[in-house]
């Protein structure tokens, strides 16, 4: 746990100094909301399902921007090798990266949700704990899939171009379940089947990196 925490704090410190991951994700999510806000200006409230779609599309693409840069700071000077050689093994290195990705995705999701609710006038009473839960689960799905694929594709040429292409098909289930659950929660429907689907998906992609993390150093 100490190694995970040390590496997590280090990434936070680097982000505070460089502002090249969280800021980028947030900026993209905000721009997407504003563009859709102007483009779909209907003079009144939009359907909650449409807002959920806009929110999740922006969130996934913003998350992708962050995921692409997740291991970017380590590549220039082979820092991953140094981190992996430290006592405690390699697994904490992957876990710390996943935690960092989750924090940034969750923060982006939270802010993007608040802004979307305000811009598209989603009734405030329906911005419930359930929506927060859905966004956190969606962030976890994005972070776990993204960390695994970002690590696996790290040494491939054209990593930054290839990664979104590799990752997007794996995120389609997250997007569908997230959109459906968010829309259902906002309109007072039944979000739980979709939330359970998100939980199952997250579980699978949290376990997979634990099984495959050794390959990250071999590819």
């Amino acid at each position: 746990m100490q190694k995970i925490w040390t590496l997590f704090v280090k990434d936070m410190r680097l982000e505070a100094r460089q502002k090249d991951m969280g800021f980028l994700m947030l900026a993209f999510a905000m721009m997407e909301t504003l563009v859709f806000g102007f483009a779909l200006d209907s003079g009144g409230r939009m359907q909650t399902d449409e807002v959920a779609g806009i929110l999740w599309m922006g969130f996934l693409f913003a998350g992708m921007l962050g995921i692409v840069r997740l291991f970017g700071r380590e590549t220039a000077e082979d820092v991953m090798v140094g981190m992996a050689m430290a006592p405690g093994g390699r697994l904490p290195v992957v876990m710390a990266k996943m935690a960092v990705a989750w924090v940034f995705c969750a923060a982006t999701a939270s802010i993007a949700t608040s802004v979307d609710v305000a811009v598209f006038q989603v009734p405030g009473t329906r911005v419930s704990v359930i929506v927060v839960l859905v966004m956190l689960l969606g962030a976890l799905g994005l972070a776990s899939v993204g960390t695994l694929l970002s690590g696996l594709s790290l040494n491939l040429s054209g990593h930054e171009v290839l990664l979104p292409v590799l990752t997007m098909p794996f995120l389609v289930p997250v997007a569908i379940a997230g959109m459906e659950a968010t829309g259902a929660a906002w309109r007072g429907g039944r979000p739980w089947p979709w939330i359970h689907a998100l939980m199952a998906y997250d579980l699978i992609f949290m376990v997979l990196p634990l099984l495959l993390y050794e390959f990250l150093w071999e590819v």
């Binding site: 680097l14 380590e74 000077e77 820092v79 050689m85 405690g88």
Partner: peptide
Amino acid sequence: PDGRIGYLGHKSLMYPNLTLAENLQLYGRL
């Protein structure tokens, strides 16, 4: 990997945006 082994490769294995002291503090904590 084994913590009793020190490796010096073609790269520094340190973060370019951190100072040397900060990099060494990180390794010291690890």
